[in-house]
C-alpha cells in the first residue's frame, strides 16, 4: 500500500552483515557499548523483572516504511506467528502473572490470530498495547478492527512521525499521512484519546532523517496544537523514539553517507541515566517463530538471548528470564542517547 520503494530496498537486510558493520564501526571508531556502560558504572545490563511481554507477531505489513527496522512489508507473508506459538505465548504470560502485553509487527492486526489472542490476553486481565500503523484501520478488510480494539480497551500506540503530510509520507509512503488522519478520526469517534474515555491513544514521533528526536514535551505540544487546529484530532501522549541504526534505516544511513556521523551523534550523546532505564531490563521480546530476545532490535539482528538463558518460548522460565544478563551491541547506543529511547518514549 502506498509506497514505491525500489525492489532492492525491499530485500531483507542480512542481519549478520548489519551486525558486523555495527561492530566494525564500534571497534574502529567508537568505544564498545559494554565498555562505555562499565566506565559509567552502570554495566553490565541485567534484567530486573518482566513487566512487559512484547510479541512481534510477524513481518507482514500493508506499508513499507523507509526506516523500518523490521524490514516489514506486503511481501513478508511467510514470517508470521502461528496459532500454536500464540498459545505458547499465552502459557508463558500466565506463568509471569499479569504483565503488559505489547503487540508489534509488521502490522500486528493483520495476523489471522490477532483478535483471538487479544481476547485471550484481555481475559487474563492484562493490559494490551497494539502498535498500530493507523492505515490498517482504514483497510476495507479491517472494517471492524477499530471497534474491536475499543471493545477490548486495547491501548493504541500509533506511528505518526510528523504532523505534516510531506515528512510523514517521505518516511512511510505516498498517501500514508491522509489515511493515518482518517484512522485517527475513526479512533477519536470511538472515544480514543478523548478525556475520560479510558481509551488511550498515544502517538509515536520518530525523526524523518539522520538526526535525533526533539524534547518530548516540546514536540508533544506542537503535535497537540497542530493536529487539533488542522484536523480536530485528540490524543493522550506523544512518545519520541530514536531511530535505531539497523534494518532499512541503517541501509538509508549507509546509502546517504550519514552512518558514521549518526553513530557519532548516538555515542556522543550517551546518557548513563538513560542506560539504567532501558526497556530490555523490564521486558522480554518474542519473535514470530517463538524465539526469545532482549528487545525487538536484537530480534531483527538475530541476537538471541545469551548467558545460558532459555531461547524459545516453549522453554519459558520466568525466574531465570527475569534476572538474565542482557545481550548488547553498538546499536544499543540508540537507546541511551540524550533522554534515552524506549517503546514508551524517552527514558530520563
Amino acid at each position: 500500500m502506498g509506497n514505491s520503494l525500489p525492489a532492492e530496498r525491499r530485500l531483507p537486510p542480512d542481519a549478520d552483515q548489519q551486525f558486523r558493520i555495527l561492530q566494525l564501526d564500534g571497534e574502529a571508531a567508537f568505544q564498545p557499548f559494554d565498555s562505555r556502560l562499565a566506565q559509567a558504572g552502570v554495566g553490565p545490563l541485567v534484567a530486573g523483572g518482566i513487566d512487559v511481554v512484547q510479541i512481534n507477531v510477524g513481518k507482514f505489513c500493508n506499508q513499507t516504511c523507509k526506516h523500518c527496522h523490521v524490514d516489514a512489508g506486503p511481501d513478508r507473508t511467510q514470517e508470521n506467528m502461528s496459532r500454536e506459538t500464540f498459545e505458547l505465548c499465552l502459557d508463558a504470560i500466565k506463568r509471569i502473572g499479569r504483565p503488559d502485553v505489547d503487540l508489534t509487527g509488521g502490522a500486528p492486526e493483520l495476523n489471522p490470530s490477532f483478535r483471538w489472542f487479544v481476547e485471550q490476553v484481555r481475559g487474563l486481565g492484562c493490559k494490551v498495547i497494539d502498535r498500530c500503523n493507523l492505515t490498517v484501520l482504514v483497510m476495507r478488510s479491517q472494517a471492524g478492527l477499530a471497534p474491536f480494539l475499543a471493545l477490548h480497551r486495547v491501548q493504541i500506540v500509533a506511528s505518526l512521525p510528523y504532523f505534516l503530510g510531506s515528512r510523514t509520507d517521505a518516511q512511510r509512503g505516498d498517501g500514508v499521512f491522509d489515511k493515518s488522519i482518517l484512522g485517527l478520526r475513526k479512533l477519536n469517534e470511538l472515544g480514543y484519546g478523548r478525556p475520560g474515555s479510558g481509551l488511550e491513544l498515544n502517538l509515536v514521533y520518530n525523526p524523518t532523517g539522520a538526526f535525533l528526536p526533539p524534547d518530548q514535551d516540546a514536540i508533544e505540544a506542537d503535535f497537540r496544537r497542530e493536529l487539533s487546529t488542522r484536523y480536530h484530532i485528540e490524543f493522550n501522549s506523544l512518545y519520541t523514539i530514536t531511530n535505531m541504526p539497523i534494518g532499512r534505516y541503517r541501509d538509508y544511513l549507509v546509502r546517504s553517507g550519514n552512518h558514521r556521523r549518526y553513530m557519532e551523534q548516538l555515542v556522543n550523546a550517551f546518557n548513563p541515566a538513560a542506560a539504567t532505564g532501558v526497556m530490555c531490563r523490564s521486558m522480554i521480546s518474542v519473535g514470530w517463530d517463538g524465539r526469545l530476545y532482549d528487545c525487538d532490535f536484537n530480534q531483527m539482528l538475530e541476537l538471541e538471548l545469551g548467558f545460558g538463558a532459555p531461547r524459545h518460548i516453549r522453554d519459558f522460565d520466568p525466574e531465570r528470564l527475569a534476572a538474565r544478563r542482557i545481550v548488547s551491541g553498538q546499536h544499543c547506543y540508540g537507546c541511551t542517547a540524550g533522554s534515552g529511547s524506549s517503546c514508551g518514549g524517552r527514558i530520563s
Partner: peptide, 12 residues
Amino acid sequence: TQGCLEQGSNLE
C-alpha cells in the same frame, strides 16, 4: 540545520 530538525522544526 541539524539542530533545528532535532528540535522538531520543519523545512517550512
